[in-house]
Amino acid sequence: MTYLPPPIPSPARATRANLRHAYDLGLAGALGGLFGLYLYVEGVRAESVYIRDAMAGLLIGGSLGFFLNAYGPFRDRAWIKLSRSVATGTPAAAVGGALGLVAGELVIGIVQGGLIGRAASWAVLGLGIGLGQGIADRSRDRLVFGLIGGGLGGFLGGLVFEWLRLTTGNRPDLVQAPGMVILGAGLGTSLALVEQALRRAWVQIQSGRQEGRIYLLSPSVSRLGLDERAEVGIFGDPSVARRHAEIAATAQGYLLRDLAGAGTTRVNGAVIAGDHPLRDGDRIELGRTWLVFRHR
């Protein structure tokens, strides 16, 4: 069998993958916001403002956390990874949401409502959920992405909700759900866009059913393989080993380390063994799956 090296990835394809990532995460956030709000308005009855707010925050934050954390593994159809990711992400975002909503209530009380008051308070809710996400991911970058994304999405969602409420003659029952959808979509999209803007090193899968999937590389070692615990999970290719390779961040740059042996790890078409320094744009092949390494 003649070996055909992978094609050079086109910039258009990378852009398309970025847009798709932002689009999907935005939709996941929108669904999360919508479900959380619905659970709250139909399920919670409490007299005290702050108890009600804490419950609302738990449900909206938890639902957003569930959808945002489930999206990646769901797309990979990595069910164990999904359950693990959801099990940490959901409670963290729920607690963040509860804190954010109670704090947001204080903010809207101080500003005394209005467009800015609503937008600022929803931004605080978004910050809380973003904070929860970041802490659950135990990554400072993700925390920063979460805070920026949550703050922006919440501000925009709150602004639209209040504006719609005023223009429809005070019908929060009709217009709050779209507002919350915007909060969730804003949070998801901003998380994706801010991540795309700030990320330093990542790999993007270029073939197979995970095509387009982007994994950020950890600041220490990222494992690549079929293993559900691998930071870079590659699924659906029987020629990929459970622990196929790993990428280590060192003072000299990123190193690709082959763990599978048998000449199934290639960089730019050449079989590698042991440590191989990676440069931006390098094409990595693991079995029949290939990825692009990006670094800036």
Partner: peptide, 27 residues
């Protein structure tokens, strides 16, 4: 000033279903 940054008002199940269906279709 009446507090309530997220308004506890229900009765919008049709809107919920419509939005959920739209989002699923967009997905």
């Amino acid at each position: 000033f009446i507090p309530g940054m997220v308004v506890p008002v229900g009765g919008w199940s049709p809107i919920f279903l419509a939005l959920a269906a739209t989002l699923a279709a967009l997905g």
